[in-house]
Structure formats: structure tokens, C-alpha cells
Design a protein around this nucleic acid. Sequence first.
DNA 1: TAAGTCGTTTGTGTAAGGCAATCCATTTAT
DNA 2: ATAAATGGATTGCCTTACACAAACGACTTA
Lengths: 165, 165
Amino acid sequence: MTSSLVIQPVMEPVIQPVMEPVHRSGALLDQLARRARLRAESELAPLGLRQRHLVALTVLRCSGGSTQQALSSTLMMDGTNIVGLLNELEAEQLIERRRSPQDRRRHVVELTAKGLERLGQAECALAVAENEVFGTLDDAQRETLYTLLLQAVNGEGSRAEALRE
Amino acid sequence: MTSSLVIQPVMEPVIQPVMEPVHRSGALLDQLARRARLRAESELAPLGLRQRHLVALTVLRCSGGSTQQALSSTLMMDGTNIVGLLNELEAEQLIERRRSPQDRRRHVVELTAKGLERLGQAECALAVAENEVFGTLDDAQRETLYTLLLQAVNGEGSRAEALRE
DNA sequence: TAAGTCGTTTGTGTAAGGCAATCCATTTAT
DNA sequence: ATAAATGGATTGCCTTACACAAACGACTTA
């Protein structure tokens, strides 16, 4: 008798198999990245690096050599800017451009020993900064965050590469 | 008799209680944020928004009203630029500046109903973009990523706020 | 009443980065 | 073999996002 106004939810939500998460991570991602970058730049300055360099070096270490086009695509940056970025890194002998034997128009960009070392120094110097930025995450959480970021980053990039090579 | 060269690892690694993770997330974070931003901007353009606006709106919704100083601190952006950003949002009536009753020098910035709605539309429009950017993450992973980002972002910001208020 | 504070406006400077044109070396197609 | 296409480099121009400084009005606090 008391049932006139109340609509019965009888198993109704079960119909939608997966509740699409409403959360958009973009804004958070942007903001956290901003904090990390601002904080990082001050640690990187003594090493003569900026974040953009670090990103490039990281990508290069991870991929173990890459053509400039590939870099342009994974960094999502215009080719001309890649040239400038690489020029800066090459001027400090952190990277090397070698002509590809297969196609001598191409440059294969690789980390030098010095570059690898510098990158290591940078990461070491960044420990402090990241401890502040990720202060509220414990080590396990930081690790899963790292894993997720890595997986997301590699996914996008490799789809384009898969088509190409 | 075959034991001369091999050093026994007998329980040795147990001595260091926690292996500090060598992974630096900064570069990955930066790059993923860049991808997300580039991808997002094209979806946001029809709504007359850019990512900076979205971040501000998101922060405002989350905090439910904030003083401009607080915004300046959580967004880590110069006060004068906050003014400009808010001017743009106010021009579209997405936010409102009210003078604080406690201290009439201060502006309390709040989302309007229209602002809340627009933010919702934006997030809805961003579903496609984020599906691409986070394509390799399943729903559960995206959710934990979101949670981690949220936790990290809130941590940093609230430390400063805790001191202030 | 004086000094400090919040927000606003204006103006200046810098760095990141896109886009287009031009050039060279090389490869591929005809 | 000659023409067309491609990878990269260089130059120049333009936009945007910021930071920073100075000056002002409104307000609060000492």
C-alpha cells in the first residue's frame, strides 16, 4: 500500500554491464605535471638541462635509438623543433646523430655514454623534487603510478610506430 | 667444490628495508599530459574552452569556492595571470566573483550553475579523447590512475592551505 | 592615521612551439 | 637517367603562456 511513489530499482542497474567511469584525468594530469615540471626545473638547471631535454633523453634511452621522425611523432612535436632540441643535446654531446645505413637520408639519434650518465645524474637529482610532488603517495603507489604512466605512454606511441615499421 | 666464484646471496637483500624506486615519473607525466592536452584542446575548442580553463573549473568545483590567492597557489600560477584567466571565465558567466564578507578585500570565486554545466559538457566531450590517450589502460587501471593523481594533487596543495586557514 | 594586503590593470620580456618556405642529400619511380 | 618524393636542416614569422614589476583602489589592521 505504500508503494505508489517509490519506483522499485529491481535489478535495474545490472543492465548496464560496466559503469563507465565519469572521471576525467586530463585536468589532474595537467596540473600534477605542471607542479612536477616547475619543481624539477630548479633541480635540472645546475645540470644545464630543462624538462624538455629530460623527456627527450628518457624517450631515447627507453627506445634505444630513434629516427627523428619517430621522435617527432612520439614527442608530438613539430619536426623543426625536434631539430632545435636535438641540436642543444648534441652540442653537449649527450646524443649522437648517425646516418641510417638503410636509408642515408635518415638520422638515427642515440644516447651517448655521456648522455646516459647525465640522465642518471638528473634522475638522481630529481629524487628530492619528486619526493615533494608525490609526497602523499607511498612507495608502492608511486610505483604503480609509474607503471600506469609508462603503459599509457607506450601504448599511444607504439600504435603509430606499428603502422610505420 | 664449485663454489669459489659465486657469492652467496644468503638473505643479504633483506638488510635494506625498502628499495627506493629508481623510477622518475616526471618525464612520463609531462609527456602524457602533453598528449592529453593536445588531444583535449580540439574537443574543447567547440565549447569555447581551453585546458587552462578546464583545470581552473575543475579545481573550483572540487574546492567549492576559493579565494584568488588560494587559486594562485594551487594552480601555481602568478596572481596577475589568475586575474586574466578568471576574467575570461567570468565573461562567459562560468564563474562568479563575490566579495568575502569576512574580508572585503578578498574575492571568493565560485562556479556558477552555467559553469558547472559547461564543465560537465566538457568532460563528456573529453571521453573520446581520453579513450585514445589512455587506450592501453582498462577501466580499473584508469580509475586507479585517477585516484593516484587526485591524491598526489590534493596532497601538495593542501599542505600550503593547511598552514593558511 | 599609517602601513600592509587583495585584487586589478598595464606593460614588458621570455620561452615554447606551430607553420611555411627553402635548401641539400638521398631514395624511388618512371 | 631523369624526375619526383622524402628526411632532415635552417630561417623567419607568429601566437600563446607565463613570469615579473609598477601603480592604483578598496579595504583591514596596527
